[in-house]
Amino acid sequence: MPIRIRQHVNPLARKFQSPIAIPDWQEIYQTGARPIHLDIGCGRGRFLLNLAQQNPEVNYLGIEIRRQLVDLANQERDHLGLTNLHYLFGNMNSSAKILLESLPENRLKTISIQFPDPWFKKKHNKRRVVQPELVTLLVDYLGSGGEIFLQSDIKEVAVEMRDRFAANSNLIQQHPDWLETNPLNVATERELYVLGQNLPVYRVLLAKSTT
């Protein structure tokens, strides 16, 4: 019988408030002295799976709030024998600080947040992943010159994400308008679906100042 996996979960529920279980990074990654790409809300992890195979010189880390997806993603990683990829179960809005503090210093070089749950009802907006407190922590721990890539097919969500990150004085938007193409050159499953429907995707790339 197929495993039933929920499409949406409430990140404010009590069961998602426990801190992320931090592994020993030296045991996780074959080579620790590499830049780290953090993907928040990685879903089934296929996006990172492709990137990790294309870029063995980068360590990839996916965070996902649905444990079953994390378990399945790590199984697929093991099947392929990838040593530069790991998936963690957890809620970034309750565990960002403990996770970011645990990462090797100055190794966090790229962050991506792609097609997060939109939570359309105004009373549910507080469930959206990109909250001001998370923005501050991510920018603080991002290495100098590091990049943050955001995308959504919901313009309201994309604008909110962009504006919250752009409000941080340490970040510089790398283009005046929405990006036409994905600069990472690997599409998520949601991105492929949206583009296949000939619908727009709203993308933005920001970089941390080097001064």
Rank of each mutant, 00 (worst) to 15 (best):
K121V: 07
V130Q: 04
L137F: 10
Q53K: 12
E101V: 03
L82I: 02
V135S: 09
D71G: 06
A52F: 02
R46S: 07
N74T: 01
F120L: 09
P56N: 05
E156Q: 13
Y60C: 10
E101K: 14
G145L: 02
Y60G: 07
L100C: 05
R107G: 00
Y60E: 03
F120C: 01
Q53W: 04
F47H: 14
L108K: 01
N91Q: 06
D153G: 07
N55L: 08
D71C: 14
I154M: 12
E156N: 12
D78K: 11
K122E: 09
F47K: 06
F47M: 08
L103V: 05
N125M: 09
P118N: 04
E147K: 14
I65V: 10
L48F: 01
W119F: 13
F120T: 08
N93D: 06
N91S: 09
L100V: 01
Q114S: 13
G145A: 04
L138P: 11
E160G: 11
E133L: 06
N55A: 07
S94F: 08
D163P: 11
L150I: 08
D117V: 11
V70H: 03
R162H: 15
D78V: 01
A158D: 03
G146H: 11
N125W: 13
L85R: 00
T110P: 06
R127V: 06
S95E: 03
S94G: 11
F89W: 15
I65G: 11
N93T: 07
E105Q: 12
E147I: 12
P116W: 05
W119P: 07
R77Q: 08
L100H: 00
E133D: 15
E105M: 10
N59C: 04
T83N: 12
N106E: 15
N59P: 05
N125I: 11
N125L: 13
I65P: 15
L134G: 03
Q53E: 12
G81C: 09
R164F: 03
L48V: 02
S102A: 10
Q151C: 14
L99D: 08
N59Q: 01
N50F: 01
R107T: 04
L49H: 13
Q114R: 14
Y60W: 13
G81M: 07
L142S: 02
R162N: 15
P116D: 04
K155H: 10
S94L: 01
S144T: 09
P116Q: 03
F47T: 04
I148W: 02
L80V: 04
V157W: 01
Q131L: 05
L72K: 15
P116L: 09
S94T: 15
P56K: 02
N93W: 12
T136L: 13
L100T: 00
N106M: 13
L138H: 05
L134W: 07
K155S: 10
L49Q: 14
L108A: 06
N50R: 13
V70P: 01
A158Q: 07
T110N: 14
I111E: 03
V157Q: 06
G81Q: 06
D78F: 02
L72E: 12
M92G: 14
L61S: 00
E101M: 11
L61Y: 00
G146S: 10
E156H: 11
N55G: 01
H79N: 11
K155R: 14
R128Q: 06
L100M: 06
N50S: 12
N59V: 01
I65F: 03
H79Q: 13
L80E: 08
I63P: 07
K122A: 14
